[in-house]
């Protein structure tokens, strides 16, 4: 087929594709048909343009590069002029100094309103909502009694008055009772990875390790949350818990150190 006929066919296909797209859209045929028709139309147009480009007479142009650098005299003259002009403005030494002071302060005052964007960090990252005596609740707010969990199972938990609080999220694990006899086998850690703040959502009961799915840090549950592997640089904070006389698991205080990833003021 010669080039003109190829273009003709391609343009016919492109038109059919566009009509097809309009029809698919009108009939709510869904993204597959809409996309197919549209892509066919565009591809056929592209083919037509590419063949058309080959039909055009071959033409060669050669442009000289002459826009840079400027002729020597022009360069000399204008750079000198610029220097002289600037010198005329800035020759008053004291004024020049004050000018830079004023401009700097002006620049600072322009960015000062950025302070409105957020509160001062203060102690916000140093504590969570856990308080002494808070009973431990599931995501749905229900409380946990001592017999609710099987050995080697885990739960995502919150203080009963702050269910869903990102910073306070903790993982409650029931270990074989001989590992933590004081709390009936229960142990709780912050659920925020100390590396980049992802939830340490995986628990491997066989090795008693919590595992972060984001960057694969692993923490030893039986050794105070110490880092066993991965890029995390410090242990998972442990939530102090006890079993009340009423049988509810509760916290005996907040985490002893800031939870989540490190930051400059953390010390």
């Amino acid at each position: 087929m010669n080039a003109q006929n190829q273009i003709l066919v391609a343009l016919a296909v492109a038109s059919a594709g566009s009509l097809g797209f309009i029809a698919a859209y009108a009939l709510r045929a869904g993204s597959h048909y809409e996309g197919l028709a549209f892509a066919v139309s565009a591809a056929a147009l592209s083919y037509a343009a590419a063949v058309w480009a080959r039909l055009l007479p071959v033409e060669r142009v050669t442009d000289p590069i002459e826009s840079y650098p400027s002729p020597r005299e022009e360069r000399q003259q204008s750079s000198l002029e610029l220097e002289t002009d600037l010198a005329a403005v800035t020759r008053y030494k004291v004024l020049r100094r004050w000018l830079s002071v004023a401009i700097s302060l002006f620049a600072v005052s322009v960015v000062v309103p950025l302070r409105s964007l957020g509160p001062a960090p203060g102690r916000a990252l140093f504590g969570t909502k856990w308080r002494r005596g808070d009973r431990i609740a599931r995501e749905d707010g229900s409380l946990i009694r001592v017999n609710d969990m099987n050995v080697d199972s885990t739960l995502t938990v919150f203080p009963e008055h702050a269910v869903g609080d990102a910073q306070s999220q903790a993982v409650l694990i029931r270990l074989p009772v001989e590992l933590t006899p004081q709390t009936g086998g229960y142990i709780a850690y912050s659920r925020l990875c100390t590396h980049a703040g992802c939830p340490v959502a995986l628990y491997r009961a066989s090795v008693k390790q919590l595992f972060c799915p984001c960057h694969q840090s692993a923490f030893d549950v039986t050794n105070d949350g110490a880092v066993v592997a991965g890029p995390a640089d410090h242990a998972l904070p442990r939530l102090p818990i006890a079993i009340g006389e009423d049988g509810f698991v509760h916290a005996t205080g907040d985490f002893p150190e800031p939870v989540g990833p490190g930051f400059w003021e953390r010390g």
């Binding site: 590396h195 980049a196 840090s217 880092v227 991965g230 890029p231 995390a232 640089d233 410090h234 990833p261 490190g262 930051f263 400059w264 003021e265 953390r266 010390g267």
Partner: peptide, 14 residues
Amino acid sequence: PLALHLFGHTVPSP
């Protein structure tokens, strides 16, 4: 897994 602790401040590993 390297955090730098200097003068009561932390440069965490990320």
